[in-house]
Amino acid sequence: MTAPRRFVVDEELTIVTAADHRERLLAFLGDGNALRIDLSGVADVDTAGLQVLVMARAEGVRLGLPVEFAEPSAAVTEALALTRLEL
């Protein structure tokens, strides 16, 4: 198996950007690529952004492709703690 393809989120992960990120992530997974999602540059995240991450993980499971989350920013770490989600 090849190394996971890197997907960088370097802006907000909010309702404003969620649809775009969702489509891009689905395209990566649709190409049969394992993903490593770099969250180090996320300055703001809301529930729509968290839904995108949960969707990516679920779609990866459905397709049998690994989806990794790497280097969550302070904003992502805080949102995960508040919602008690583990990615």
Rank of each mutant, 00 (worst) to 15 (best):
L53P: 07
E23N: 13
L26W: 05
L50Y: 09
L53W: 14
D46L: 11
L25E: 12
E86C: 03
R22P: 01
T14M: 04
A81N: 05
A70H: 07
E78T: 11
A56R: 06
L26N: 07
V76E: 04
F7C: 12
A74Q: 06
E59R: 15
F28N: 08
G49F: 07
A58W: 00
G49I: 10
R24M: 14
S40I: 12
L63G: 02
T47I: 15
L87D: 06
G49N: 03
T2P: 15
T83L: 05
V76C: 00
Q51I: 01
G41L: 10
T14L: 01
G32E: 06
F69E: 13
A75H: 03
V42D: 04
R62E: 01
L53A: 14
T2S: 13
R84D: 14
A56L: 03
E78W: 14
R57V: 06
E71H: 10
L80E: 12
R24Y: 05
V45I: 11
P72D: 05
A19M: 14
G64K: 00
A34S: 09
V16T: 10
P66W: 07
L25R: 07
A34D: 14
D38W: 03
F28D: 13
L85Y: 07
I37T: 00
P4E: 12
L29P: 01
F7L: 11
A74H: 03
E78Q: 13
Q51A: 09
N33I: 04
E11V: 01
A34G: 09
A43K: 08
A18M: 05
E11W: 01
R6E: 08
R84H: 07
L82I: 10
G30A: 08
D44L: 12
G41V: 10
S40Y: 04
L39H: 09
F28A: 14
L39T: 01
A70S: 09
R5K: 12
A58N: 09
V54G: 02
D44W: 11
E23A: 15
A48S: 06
E71R: 11
A70P: 14
L82N: 04
R5L: 12
S73T: 03
A75L: 00
R22L: 10
E78R: 15
F69C: 09
E71C: 11
L13E: 00
Q51S: 13
V42A: 02
A79N: 02
R22M: 11
R62V: 00
V52L: 07
L87A: 08
E78K: 15
F69I: 09
A48E: 01
Q51F: 04
A75C: 01
R5T: 15
Q51T: 04
L26H: 12
A34L: 08
G64M: 04
L87G: 09
E12D: 12
V61W: 13
G32K: 06
I37E: 06
P66H: 08
P66C: 09
R36F: 00
S40R: 10
D44A: 14
A18H: 05
D31F: 00
L80G: 12
R62N: 02
